[in-house]
């Protein structure tokens, strides 16, 4: 009888598979972002021996807990001060933050202002699904004006927050924007962010199909993600600021 061999799922050392099934809905963009963070960490040789991952609260905030390394799941909005202190105490440790737009830019907005200003050498991966996914799809500060959510029934009244403007308002910065449609570009941004010797912020536009997308009329996650392919274009070279529909990397050393 021939021996049955199982094929490895990949990234064995980097993911806590024993915790699967994970918490994310089928079709949620967080899965793509998580997998690509893992892939980039693997390509860079980052693992439990040299890296710690920090998350806040939210669906996105569950990412650190599935990474096979020391990780901290802070209260809502507090990933950055925890991450900054860890880096200050142990500069040899690579410190990455993975969390959501609500976590990092709404309740954690004050920390985003100030941690980015102090410019510690940490890398932040921000899932921007333009809503509060975990709590059921409420208005987030990133929700575009006019978009309906369960707490903005006639459409969001205000213009959305620009995380780009917060981060690039500093003297030195690394800010990148990508989407879950543009996977190669997303990884390019993540690689560059991890190499940046300072505070690096990667915003990845992502879908929350179940608690946001369906209400907006999308039948499938694919349909929702495909709109990012239509809406977003690569910024032309020489840009110092990304237009709202542009993807790219803005840096100042």
């Amino acid at each position: 009888m021939s021996e049955v061999r199982t094929a490895p799922r990949g990234f064995e050392g980097l993911i806590k598979r024993e915790r699967y099934p994970h918490t994310w809905c089928p079709g949620c963009g967080i899965g793509l972002i998580f997998n690509n963070i893992i892939r980039v960490l693997s390509e860079k040789g980052l693992d439990y021996s040299n890296t710690a991952a920090i998350s806040g609260i939210g669906c996105s905030g569950r990412m650190a807990g599935y990474m096979n390394m020391d990780s901290v799941h802070t209260p809502h909005g507090r990933a950055l001060p925890v991450a900054e202190a860890i880096k200050l105490v142990n500069p040899d440790l690579n410190v990455i933050v993975a969390s959501g737009d609500g976590d990092l830019a709404s309740i954690g907005g004050n920390h985003l202002l100030h941690t980015s200003r102090r410019n510690p050498d940490i890398t932040v991966f921000c899932v921007n699904n333009e809503t509060y996914g975990l709590t059921g799809g409420q208005l987030a500060p990133t929700t575009p004006k006019g978009v309906r959510t369960i707490t903005s029934l006639n459409g969001a009244l205000h213009n959305p927050l620009s995380m780009q403007k917060i981060v690039t308002g500093n003297a030195q910065y690394f800010y990148a924007r990508s989407t879950v449609y543009h996977l190669d570009h997303m990884r390019e941004c993540m690689h560059a962010a991890l190499e940046w010797p300072g505070f690096a912020f990667v915003e990845v536009i992502s879908d929350c199909i179940e608690l946001h997308g369906r209400r907006l009329g999308f039948k499938t996650p694919h349909e929702m993600i495909a709109t990012y392919g239509e809406k977003y274009v690569l910024a032309p070279a020489g840009r110092t600021e990304l237009a709202p529909n542009e993807l790219g990397i803005m840096t100042k050393a």
């Binding site: 901290v72 001060p81 200050l88």
Partner: peptide, 24 residues
């Protein structure tokens, strides 16, 4: 000896947690 003046007491207290976990 590491010192940080944070933006508020929320960050100050969270930093204490992070620093403790990091070994201080």
């Amino acid at each position: 000896f590491r010192f940080i003046q944070t933006e508020d007491e929320i960050a100050a207290a969270m930093s204490v947690l992070g620093a403790s976990l990091a070994g201080a």
